[in-house]
Design a protein around this nucleic acid. Structure first.
Lengths: 199, 199
DNA sequence: TGAGTTCATTGACCTATGTTATCCTTTGCT
DNA sequence: AGCAAAGGATAACATAGGTCAATGAACTCA
């Protein structure tokens, strides 16, 4: 079970068995049921979650009750309300399970202790952060210059594993459009494809 | 001139005169003219830029020539094509001056040398990165759930100094709408305000 | 000073997306 | 099996924002 995690770390830093064990000793294994909430608005967020199996979502609920999904989390991803996590402010997002899931909970304070003992873990998370930063940057760029159809197609290309397992209305929410619009887009794409196949 | 920079650092970490001098010794002062380009697509990006005075923009140019602005940079901000900077990939953005500007150029390799000598600078940039990450996160959230009028009003509130000095069509570009739309939005807001004042 | 450039605004029109309501299928539960 | 809930599609209509074209003000610079 922890093999995937070890690989995950070793794509960025080299670690010994002992260092890996020390890292694992900070983690709390949690088994979660579909729809279970890990973080709700207002919570103090002291942990981030590494997904072993299943699928999570981080989403914001607006005053009128609409939800917009900021992040999906499947196997090998980290999920949290990172604004609250980094800034020690009350959560503005919710994090919940789309499927039954198994996650490893990593406490922030324990992590900072670990940074002092084994600095290479600080390096690991700094590099993860730059990657996440760049990913957000290009998501903003997509939002600025691409239409919904293109954004949907690129989402399917970039995250085929997510597209296949989460309902369309959640994808719509992530893309910033309504489910009805996504439905229209998918119909349009299917028709396009059909007419190509006929020709 | 470097006083502002020192304050900028000291909002996050404490540093001695000597440490500050060592940091400054890495920096190259550059005076730039309006419209001058610091980074163009395809460049290798080895530096980030701290703005002493003036105003920069980081923008993407799409195939059909449309530009979308990802970031403005005024006094006390860092600007670059961060994707290229962090990943050592060719620049996809351009960075140019909206006004005559003075910047301090910080070379990535020299910075990494400095990290080894004085680790607290690594801490400084890691914290700056978390702040930037959170800012991008909330920009995405705004894009998902707010209409253009709201986004414009919040932009004016959040960045009054930018709103006052860059042309409206650049603000429109940053917000992901066309200048004509922003013009209509501004008209609508002015009318609303007028009718409130009359009442 | 005068011509060119940049920028903002406006109007007419068009298109993509949102809204509301309804219907149908699938899935899950007991 | 039978019912409820979830998910998806669709249609009619409304609206925000994009497109295109024209105008004029303000600024720049030779």
């Amino acid at each position: 079970m922890y093999k995937v995690l070890r690989k995950h770390l070793e794509r960025v830093i080299e670690i010994s068995d002992q260092e890996f064990d020390e890292f694992c000793s900070l983690l709390v294994l949690r088994k979660l049921r579909r729809k279970e909430l890990l973080i709700r608005p207002g919570d103090r967020v002291t942990s981030e979650f590494y997904v072993i199996s299943g699928c999570l979502q981080a989403f914001h609920t607006s005053e009128n009750g609409d939800q917009s999904i900021l992040q999906f989390g499947i196997e090998d991803w980290w999920v949290s309300d990172f604004e609250a996590f980094f800034n020690d402010t009350p959560a503005r997002l919710s994090v919940s399970c789309i499927e039954d899931s198994t996650v490893l909970e990593l406490n922030k304070e324990m992590l900072e202790e670990l940074y002092k003992r084994i600095p290479k873990f600080e390096r690991f998370f700094r590099i993860k952060l730059t990657k996440a930063f760049v990913a957000l940057y290009s998501r903003i760029q997509n939002g600025l210059e691409k239409n919904s159809t293109t954004r949907y197609l690129e989402f399917c290309e970039t995250y085929p594993h997510i597209e296949q397992r989460v309902p369309n209305y959640k994808i719509a929410s992530y893309l910033g459009i309504k489910p009805e619009s996504l439905s229209r887009i998918r119909k349009e794409l299917a028709e396009r494809e059909a007419s190509i196949n006929k020709a």
